[in-house]
Nucleic acid binder design. Sequence first.
DNA 1: CTAAATATATGCTA
DNA 2: TAGCATATATTTAGAA
Length: 658
Amino acid sequence: MAPVTKKTNGKRSARGVSQSDKKSTKKPRISIDSSDEELELAKNEDAELSSSDEDDLDDLDKGKPEGEKKEEDKEADDLDISDDDEDEDEEKEGKSKSEGGEGGNHTEQRKLLKERKMQRRSGTQVQQIKSVWERLRVKTPPLPKQIREKLSNEIWELSKDCISDLVLKHDASRIVQTLVKYSSKERREQIVDSLKGKFYVLATSAYGKYLLVKLLHYGSRTSRQAIINELHGSLRKLMRHREGAYVVEDLFVLYATHEQKQQMIKEFWGSEYAVFRETHKDLTIQKVCESSVEKRNIIARNLIGTITASVDKGSTGFQILHAAMREYVKIANEKEISEMIELLHEQFAELVHTPEGSDVACTLMAKANAKERKLILKTLKNHGEKLIKNEHGNIVFITILNCVDDTVLVFKSFSPTVKDNLQEFIIDKFGRRPWLYILLGLDGKYFSPIVKNELLRYIELSEATSKKDPLQRRHELLSKFAPMFLSTISKNYAEILTENLGCQFVAEVLINDELYAQLNEKDQQKYQTVLDNILTTFKGDITEETHPIHRAFSTRLLKALIQGGKWNNKERKVEPLKNVQGLGVPFAYKLYDEIIDSSNLLEWINNADSSFTIVALYETLKDQKEGKQFLKDLKEVQSKITSDENNKGSHLLVKLLK
DNA sequence: CTAAATATATGCTA
DNA sequence: TAGCATATATTTAGAA
């Protein structure tokens, strides 16, 4: 493969980035529901073949909200019907004629054009079918079923003998698309059958590709398999094709089963593996490459060939490409990894949001040397928010935390993003994970075995370059980020504590010996402020429904702070803390002093949501001098505790008091 | 951590 | 293809 030239690289990456920025998580995909976008596309291509880059972008324009989409469909339809007989071909011709100076006799031109159309292969049929299609395709008002069926039968009768003449023309292809949409499964099979042998041509045709994707979408398992079988052997060629690449990506992402995906990827190893795919079924790439260096070299060359071509083409965001890259990085040697980083580094951010791409990014990150890591950090820092919030990007980010020794650089690169978004992060299912990692390490509570093993695998890979002790690295990060945690909580505690995930995070921050050990004097004060903030939220009348005591998670947080440790379910006891100051007895004392007192103590006991808090207070304070007042008040109201079956906390309290 | 609850994928039947 | 059942993965809740 020819090496990437600076010029193409720059251009492509620019396009790639704008693409992903506009359509955030949406992947390039060919639309199923709307055929009108396709017509738009057709117009453009007719008008100016060289503006293909633009067209590709149009083509990406998917995933609009349902309502919006309908609107546009309607509009386009109306417009379409009004000027349909003289479609865009005609207008074009008219223009070029008048430019040629032949004057503007429109009727004359129309006639000419009609004749020319008739002369095309199956021209008469096309015109005929088209008029039936006009009646079939209307969306408003919706056609009754019988009529729709009748019309679609009519079209089928007319078109079944010349179907292969239809599918490559931009207007006629749409007719077949509509036909597919409204046909029975038997007829869909028939259509697929009659197009056998043509799928490659379809995939590479500017108009045919839409039909092919519709066949995949509406087709049966066997139809899909038939199409895949036929495209097999040409996938590498298709990946380099302007239209074909989109079809292959769609096929891979949306329609192929797991097994079919494996098959498809194997083809990128080399044609040998595409042809004899049955015999190579359960082969993994590592096994083959271990068996022979020659084979490894051939496979590596084939893979990087496809990868380089696609990256140059600007398809860095394609999932199928990510899957190919994953195979490659599994077997790549040190030099090849470096070249890969060189090839990708500007577009690194386009990898990280798919499972396969994230795997590639993590592997590269782990295997990269210090200088290369710096380079990657530089590209990723501008995409921090998405990187951290995305399920897969998140893994990449944690891998960065796990393997980059230069924690100062890591902090510098991401601290602005973190500062702006931390409040969102900590209540986000994925966005909070990196911070929980910094606080607790790879705790099984927050990292499922699968995710954990994946992360451990990258750590293992990184051991060749990363020299720092993992715990030291994590503590360095903790000491840098902890003040940010505290100020974010202190500033937004009211909102954070209304969220389950927020409460959980706050608990992890506050009940954490490692964190407290990293705090300087000023930040320790900040820590105490946060404790006061939390007390503040529990002020007020607990008979109000909005009081935080009625939300299970904030109550649990409060209880944990009173107990001054986390509940260990295995040992069935609270784990005491060594470093942290201000939890347990002092916190309980403050709570009783400021929030609960003799005036509302009974209320707290007699409410099922808050009674366990009092139990916790009792257990913490019963043998302490700070608890004297509390115990005295408790004795006074003891007799007035109501006996409510549902209030297990008050029952327990009565039992304890005996 | 564990058990239950829930979501997701896969296969079978009509 | 729809609907259902079954297996499997992932998420959630949770003490007294």
